[in-house]
Design a protein around this nucleic acid. Structure first.
Lengths: 90, 90
DNA sequence: ACAATACGCAACCACAGGGTTGCGTGTCAA
DNA sequence: TTGACACGCAACCCTGTGGTTGCGTATTGT
């Protein structure tokens, strides 16, 4: 099942918070995201930990990332989310 | 976040299979479900393991259970699933 | 040129979680 | 009444994973 990664990605509360932030802004650097999470959501975790979460979100197809100079640009993608629960709803 | 349990419940492929089976039949005993999973999906895991999964699904509100004599009746509930991804889709 | 910045990578740690085995118990049919 | 049956409970094991620290590196402004 290829959306196994999506369900796994959604299982962690920190990653869901990250998606909240990412879905509100079309484009954002990892640095910005990290700052916002700490400021607005009192997330007290290291940058490296957040980077790992982003990797998982990217593998799940929920986030696209592109290296732009010094920064890593992040783009939210809701496609894997659409109709993911349809198999149980009729 | 109270739907944390829902996301956690959906993170495991075996539990998603169980939901597949449960959503197709309104009512079912744990025994029936176990049998079906082994027959139709080649799930080779113990009864106790499946019972643990059911407990988690129940805590998430995705399954209701009622002891009826010797059997444990299971009822699927799709309510926690509805619009669970809405926060990221607009 | 140089130092601060934004990030990648790797090793390590603690614990949650999926699985098992073993045993006990209430229920029901013969 | 007795034995098979459907299930609950608990201890245990091993792996996955979320977190950390430490270090290296390309990029950038001054």
């Amino acid at each position: 099942m290829h959306n196994d990664l999506v369900f796994k990605a959604l299982a962690d509360p920190t990653r869901r918070l990250m998606l909240d932030e990412l879905s509100e802004r079309k484009e954002q650097t990892l640095y910005e995201l990290t700052a916002r999470l700490i400021m607005r959501h009192e997330v007290t975790i290291s940058r490296q930990a957040l980077a790992k979460h982003i990797d998982l979100l990217e593998q799940a197809g929920l986030v696209g990332s592109e290296k732009r100079g010094k920064y890593r640009m992040l783009v939210f993608n809701d496609a894997p989310l659409r109709s993911i629960t349809d198999r149980w709803l009729k």
